[in-house]
Simulated scan of single mutants.
Amino acid sequence: MTYEQIRYETDGPVATITLARPEKLNAYTAVMGIELAAAIRAAGADDAVRAIVLTGEGRGFCAGADISGGADSFGGSGPNFAAANRPREEGGGFVGALFDSIKPTIAAINGAAVGVGATLTLPCDIRIAADTARFGFVFARRGLVPEAGSAWFLPQVVGLPQALRWCLSGSVFDAAEALRGGLVSEVVAPDALLARAQAIAREIAENTAPVSVALTRQMLWRFAGEASPAAALRVDGGFAMALGAGPDVREGVAAFLEKRTPAFPGRIASDMPPGYPWWG
């Protein structure tokens, strides 16, 4: 696929998706949302890709929705609104693509991440930031409500009290506050950010089994909001037994005993265990 507003690049097991409207601080458009979803799914379909890094070009990560069309940008039929908030049954746009991803996702937040620029990072598994990055869930200051599923994702990531503090005030805050609040897991110098994100991706790629990681990220995201462990218990035993009898576990144990890097044979495209996917 040819992309207009993002770049999609692979380097070994790592796919890097870059929001590429630097002259607009990568302000979000419907085209960007469609391309982002397509790139995430392309990475998921490529067995050579083991992890996805999402970042922005230039000074900004994503400075929110492109409002060059004025308030009409946010109307129910507005182009930016439609792509960000497509229902799950229609594929969920970039939100559905990130949430349903079978590859781990790492957001490398290089600059301003405001509005949809902040919420599009929430379905990512890991978020790190440059020390110059700034964040804002500014919807209430624009007369809006949290979008892109963020009323669910943000409390999952940082807890309800912190989510309420940021969303009710609509304030813009720095990377240090994002770290204290649990929105990002580490803060680094701007010139070290992308290399650090790619190093995390390579650590995953070089040491873990693709099938195990695909199952693990789905289990953690989908069971995190359950009221009890009952739903997890219905599936994790079966997966453990199926994987335990397979070649990935034999290779993982052998690599541990032989003190070497594992070479897991399992592939997501062909070796997911019976019972996956377990949700409706």
Rank of each mutant, 00 (worst) to 15 (best):
V138P: 03
Y3H: 11
A242V: 01
V249T: 15
F173S: 06
I126L: 10
R217M: 03
P87G: 05
I6T: 02
P229F: 06
E206I: 06
V157M: 05
R7Y: 05
A209S: 15
G75W: 13
S212Q: 10
T132V: 15
A37S: 14
R50M: 07
P87A: 04
V158P: 07
A263Q: 15
A118M: 13
A254Q: 02
A108S: 07
R142K: 11
F264G: 07
C62K: 11
C124L: 07
G92W: 00
I106A: 09
F139G: 08
E9H: 13
E251F: 07
V95A: 07
G238D: 01
G252K: 02
G182K: 06
G266L: 14
P265D: 03
G181R: 04
G76Q: 08
L122V: 09
R267D: 06
G275Q: 00
F94S: 00
E9M: 09
P273H: 03
A133W: 08
A45K: 09
R260M: 06
D248C: 15
A38W: 15
S77T: 15
Y28G: 10
T208L: 13
R222F: 01
G70M: 06
L233P: 07
Q162G: 10
G244C: 10
R141W: 00
A43L: 05
A71C: 09
D66N: 02
L183R: 02
D47F: 05
P104S: 01
I128T: 07
L98Q: 00
A84I: 13
R7V: 02
S77D: 15
